[in-house]
Amino acid sequence: MTAEIILFWLFAFLTCAGAIMVAASQNVVRMAFSLVLTLGSTAVLFLLLGADFVGATQLLVYVGGTLVLLVFGVMLTATGPFTRIKSSPADAILSGLIGVVFLFIVASTVTAVNWDGENGIDQKIAMGAHAKAVEGGFNPTQQGNTTRPLGLSFLSLRADRDLKLDLPKESSAETNTAPVVPGVSVVMPGVMPPPKSPVPLSTGYLLPFEIVSVHLLVVLVGAAYLARTKRRATT
């Protein structure tokens, strides 16, 4: 029983308990608190999974930003006692039942899959697709330090795939036989292929990164419009 395992169980428990409290509680302030607990614990789980940057972001954006937003919402709308808006027990029981069935379906389906290990999905794909991540997932041994790989991945420089391998040698043999990498796999027959390149580019995330900025701008304009009071035309 390593410390890692203990931490996992502890935060797994906290995550689930928080989530259940969010669902079960009738008091919106308690819900908010439980949500902080859940999201925070999830951030720790992220860290345990070796995603330190995402974990940190989770803490910053989610717990620090989104939740504060929600708490503001709670405060702005809390005019009367919260008891007034409680859901009826019948609703709760019904939803609970649906939830249990749903949980059974999702959990029993998802956890039954052999995700890694012997003859697991990772092996099958890694072998069949000639994926370059021989060891399956990303960052299995070296904990943390994901910031740089993440940053590079936006430029389609993939620490988990491209940079580990001897690129030119392998690619020249592979690209023609197994067109698996997105950039080239969908070359249309009868259409002029793009200029031949030694290595196919891995998926880079520059575009969504930029596009999201436009999205945020639009969304903020919308939110601002809705939140502000209508200015009266001065005539």
């Binding site: 990772d122 997105p182 796999s185 998926t203």
Partner: peptide, 22 residues
């Protein structure tokens, strides 16, 4: 998320191919 986990990729044209592997 499940689909991406199963196929190990996000690229749509890849999905059919990857799924047939598993």
């Amino acid at each position: 998320s499940l689909l991406a986990g199963l196929t190990g990729t996000g690229s749509l044209p890849e999905i059919g191919h990857r799924l047939s592997l598993i």
